[in-house]
């Protein structure tokens, strides 16, 4: 089996320092919508300048490089045990090279491990065996500021007039955006999961953020709701950094999971504008990045 430590180190560097083109495009569109002379526009100008600078200097876009979350789709024959070791080794090296901030803190002692290696969920690695001969590794870095404003609702919720349908999903999602204010580093991207249990629902709400910002949902009803939530979130007037403005949310991604008859969870993962996710593909021993 090919040693992937070096290619994964490069995946981490790329993810932490080089914002994906679809997100940068979204931020440039947002800039056009904000009025010159207002703080919202100034914030977006600073954000875009920072994106360029991080790319040029190979330094982290944001100092909070989050929990490194890896999604590994591997063809038959790869060892997940060895890939886990290689991912951990690459994460520790990336921390040493200042691509990642040491972020793994023991919750009881308060001690930071110093190299981003914690328990079995830090870094987080999802493995899935797939057909074909191509190995794909997606990496997402999601900081604590936006992670903290994520929310989960159990429907019905009478306070928000939210029943167990898409109209109810809309109400609670808008509530989450209003409660987040600028604290999740708006303009953000909403990852929403409908259904599942409490755990799988939150996991799905993050995984759906791997989609491209400008794609559409194959389900027409969910696609309409995605458009509606982006538009209505922007009517809240929270704006970039919560300074007030027209661009609060750059996009919305929705997924649904089977649920128990008794449960109807809606989980909202709020992704900050520094929407860091990249993919690495290994095919015939050749490594490429997207």
């Amino acid at each position: 089996m090919q040693d992937l430590t070096e290619p994964i180190l490069e995946l981490i560097r790329l993810t932490a320092t080089n914002l994906p083109p679809d997100v940068e495009e979204g931020l440039r569109d947002a800039l056009q919508q904000e009025e010159p002379g207002f703080a919202a526009r100034g914030a977006l100008e600073t954000i875009l300048k920072n994106v360029d600078m991080a790319r040029e200097n190979s330094t982290p876009i944001c100092q909070d490089t989050g929990t490194p979350i890896f999604y590994v789709n591997y063809p038959e024959g790869w060892s997940t045990r060895r890939m886990r070791e290689q991912i951990k080794s690459a994460v520790a090296q990336a921390t040493d090279k200042s691509y990642l901030r040491p972020n793994a803190v023991d919750s009881i002692s308060g001690v930071n491990s110093g190299d981003n290696i914690g328990d079995e969920h830090f870094p987080t690695i999802h493995f899935e065996e797939i057909e074909g001969d191509e190995l794909q590794i997606d990496l997402m870095l999601k900081g604590g500021g936006c992670e903290n404003v994520g929310a989960q609702y159990s429907l019905p919720n009478s306070e928000l007039g939210a029943g167990r349908d898409l109209a109810g999903v809309r109400n609670v999602a808008l509530d989450a955006v209003q409660k987040a204010q600028g604290k999740g580093c708006a303009p953000g991207i909403l990852g929403i999961a409908i259904g599942g249990d409490r755990g799988s629902s939150f996991v799905a709400s993050k995984e759906v953020l791997l989609r491209q910002l400008d794609d559409s949902n194959p389900n027409p009803e969910m696609n309409d709701l995605e458009q509606q939530l982006t538009e209505e979130s922007n009517q809240l007037g929270i704006g970039p950094m919560g300074f007030g403005g027209k661009t609060t949310v750059l996009g919305t991604k929705i997924t649904s999971k089977h649920r128990l008859p008794a449960s109807y969870f809606v989980s909202v993962s709020y992704m900050c504008w520094a929407y860091r996710r990249r993919q690495m593909v290994v095919k015939n021993d050749q490594v490429s990045y997207q």
Binding site: A43, T46, M53, P60, Q63
Partner: peptide, 26 residues
């Protein structure tokens, strides 16, 4: 500006000293 980490770091001319490094780098 949240997230503007590379840009803001450019305005830091010097790290004079550090206290309580046992709290961890962040």
């Amino acid at each position: 500006v949240g997230g503007a980490a590379s840009l803001i770091a450019q305005s830091v001319l010097e790290v004079t000293t550090v206290y309580k490094l046992d709290f961890g780098v962040p």
